[in-house]
Design a protein around this nucleic acid. Structure first.
Length: 679
RNA sequence: UGCCUGGUGGUCUAAUGGUAGGACAUCGGUUUUUGAUAUCGGUAAUCAAGGUUCGAAUCCUUGCCGGGCAACCA
């Protein structure tokens, strides 16, 4: 355990090395630099936790700096939302900074650059300059304006600032190297003309500095020791350093940029542009829609700051790109809510239950523990009466002995109440069960201490007294996309993968009266169902709950298996377990090298996989559908095996279809071929 | 076709030349007035081929695969 916490991520190691090399600890300073053009999401949380975590670890200041150099996209609304989210996550910044505070200094430095012959004003169109820029494999050509006199450049730049020119007509560029293998070094843009009011500087400026000309200098001005950003900025580092070379005083702290991989979450998208598209297309109700991976969406959904911080911690920081499975996020929130959520009862899909031997009109106030995980968390009262609602799926007229719930002639415990036995049902003309009649062991009341109350019965159900039930709307959420990585396809738009069933509204659920007093940030566990929190749209007399996440449900997992057992292929399941396991493993081993093979060897491998697939159960194969896209070999092997299973009569399901579809879209020909073969 | 960068179980991550470990997921046992929680156990990985070394996930070479780079965005 102790060893785990000792293990440093590579950024922390860099800091340690710098300290060891003589950097005074007092000079450590970090920053989190969002652009206020959208809401923060769970990916930003990684960066926030990294930077502020570093601050906590070394007792160093962390600035919040808004990178606000593009007034066409940025708004005060986003500034406010970002600040709120960071505070909600539980972090405090040392200084609230804005790149726009440095506009004058940046301008002055630009003048110096021009004077030293290292920047010039270009008058060409964007298209012309793009063409001159060359390509990654061929060098660019120099602009005809590149060698203008310093005087002319100075004059033009000052007139740009004075508003004499229209947007797009003039631009300030650094003079570096049009043949550099790094495209960013091919005379990058420093300033462009934008005639739009800025959320902080108003109309003071009509020229705005570009990111590269701003970021490093802002770090320098704030004496940031470690400027941490995501991997796509790696190639900007050369420019970052070049600019600092031009302006930095060697006696002052020189910031250094380091990059880590951005965090992706499965079944969602994580770019502000795409999230904005979901908002603007009304696919979701807003940035804080509970299905959104935004901090505000997660908050509304019922996630806690602790769970998000924990998720960031266990996800880690590295340089390899990855897609973290949502199940890890769900684990983090369940872990927190299990410890802290108040236990209550609510019925989402009700059926009427009548206890025939319980007196009509009688009401008992029973005692319910608020939270068994917390000592002294107190209790609250739950009214009990003759007529109750229970969950439809908690009753079956007749069932096998694996069904721990209510069926005719069987007993179950009503949570915090009595043990009951189902006797009969009343059905409507269509054959639907509309009432369940049962009898109750009147000595068995929970906590009464009687012998009957101590009896062990296999199942326990949640319930609500009809007479006392409070109506509530329940909103249940599923993944927003049905593809694991909806934005990973070059030829398909991520919007094609939107899950049409991501929101399910239960208009009329019934909850216990205790919940009438629920407040906005309260966290509840609806026992046996999941974790719920009040939605901000709830009003007095109109309860609305968001389902944060369900409880783990090993019973639900058994269901599909039980159905499979009826099919002939399945009974070997147990006996051949060992054999099957090695078969699937063997397939994985062969597959891994698959793309390295050719000719006869390839053919042999394919045949072997197909042969081994005969021994494999579908349940073993399905997890491998999640194999990362880059592990093509494994995916090919799985595709071959899947083909064998389908031939044997395996029914197609959504997961299978999605896997085949992904295969068809892949760039690897072998994989496409296999996918086509079974399409 | 250039430059940069990365490849450890299904997923995420440790091991920094010396026992491939942890978490999630998954499977199974125990406990349980939540089929939850808790608890115990199982399955499962170093992209490949060569080389250096007593010893390689780690160093070298070659190859394979993934990501980034040609916005008046950040």
């Amino acid at each position: 355990m102790a060893k785990d916490s000792e293990s440093l991520n590579f950024i922390e190691q860099i800091v340690e090395q710098d300290l060891a090399a003589g950097l005074p600890k007092e000079q450590l300073r970090f920053r989190f630099p969002p652009e206020p053009n959208g809401y923060l999401h769970i990916g930003h949380a990684a960066s926030i936790c990294l930077n502020f975590g570093l601050g906590e670890r070394y007792n160093a200041p962390v600035n919040l700096r808004f990178d606000d150099t593009n007034p066409t996209k940025e708004e005060q609304e986003y500034v406010d939302a970002i600040k709120h989210d960071i505070e909600w996550l539980g972090f405090q910044w040392a200084t609230e900074c804005y790149s726009s505070d440095y506009f004058q200094q940046l301008y002055d430095w630009a003048i110096e650059l021009i004077k030293s012959g290292k920047a010039y004003v270009d008058k060409q169109s964007a298209e012309a300059m793009a063409e001159q820029k060359g390509t990654p494999t061929s060098p660019g050509v120099e602009s005809p304006h590149r060698n203008q006199s310093v005087e002319e450049n100075l004059d033009l730049f000052q007139r740009m600032k004075a508003g004499e020119f229209e947007p797009g007509t003039h631009i300030l560029r650094a003079k570096i190297d049009m043949a550099s293998p790094n495209m960013l070094m091919r005379d990058p843009l420093l300033y462009r003309i934008v005639k739009k009011a800025h959320h902080r500087t108003g109309n003071d400026w009509c020229i705005y500095p570009m990111y590269d000309w701003t970021h490093g200098q802002s770090d320098y001005l704030e004496s940031i020791s470690h400027s941490i950003c995501t991997l796509e900025f790696k190639s900007h580092r050369e420019l970052y350093d070049w600019f600092l070379d031009q302006i930095a005083d060697p006696d002052r702290l020189r910031p250094k940029q380091r990059e880590f991989a951005r965090r992706n979450l499965s079944y969602t998208v994580m770019s502000k542009r795409k999230l904005l598209e979901l908002v603007q297309s009304k696919t979701v109700s807003g940035w804080d829609d509970p299905r959104m991976p935004t901090i505000s969406g997660l908050r509304r959904r019922g996630y806690t700051p602790e769970s998000i911080r924990k998720f960031s911690e266990v996800s880690g920081i590295t340089k390899r790109d990855s897609v973290t499975d949502v199940s890890l996020l769900e684990f983090c929130i369940r872990e927190d809510l299990n410890k802290n959520a108040t236990r209550v009862m609510g019925v989402l899909d009700p059926v009427k239950l009548i206890i025939t031997n319980y007196p009509e009109g009688k009401v008992e106030m029973l005692t319910a523990e608020n939270n068994p995980e917390i000592e002294n968390s107190g209790t609250h009262e739950v009214p009990f009466s003759r007529e109750l609602y229970i969950e439809k799926e908690d009753f079956k007229e007749s069932a096998g002995n694996k069904f721990f719930r209510l069926s005719i002639g069987k007993e179950v415990r009503l949570k915090n109440a009595y043990i009951i036995k189902a006797e009969s049902v009343v059905k409507d003309n269509a054959g639907n069960i509309i009432e369940i009649h049962c009898t109750c062991d009147l000595d068995s009341r929970s906590g009464s201490g009687t012998e009957s109350s101590e009896r062990k019965v296999k199942g326990t159900l949640h319930w609500v007294s009809i007479q006392h039930a409070v109506k509530a709307e329940i909103r249940e959420y599923d993944r927003l996309f049905f593809d694991e990585a909806p934005d990973s396809y070059s030829d398909r738009n991520f919007m094609e993968f939107v899950n049409p069933e991501s929101l399910k509204i239960v208009e009329t659920a019934f909850v216990e009266p205790f919940l009438q007093e629920a407040k906005l940030d309260d966290k509840f566990q609806f026992q046996r169902l999941g974790y719920f929190t009040l939605d901000k749209e709830a009003q007095a007399g109109q309860l609305i709950f968001n389902k944060t996440v369900g409880l783990k449900d090993s019973w639900a997992k058994q269901q599909p298996q039980a159905e499979q057992q009826k099919q002939p292929a399945a009974q070997q399941n147990q006996s051949q377990h060992q054999g099957q396991r090695s078969a699937i493993n063997e397939i994985q081993k062969i597959s891994k090298k698959y793309t390295n093979l050719s000719g006869d060897k390839l053919e042999t491998a394919r045949t072997n996989i197909a042969k081994l697939a005969e021994e494999v159960a579908y349940e073993e194969l399905e997890p491998l559908f999640n194999t990362a896209a880059k592990k093509v070999g494994t995916r090919i092997g799985v595709m071959i095996a899947l083909g064998v299973l389908l031939k044997k009569g395996q029914e197609r399901n959504a997961a299978i279809e999605a896997f085949i579809e992904a295969g068809l879209q892949d760039s690897n020909e072998l994989l496409v071929e296999e996918a086509k073969g079974i399409e």
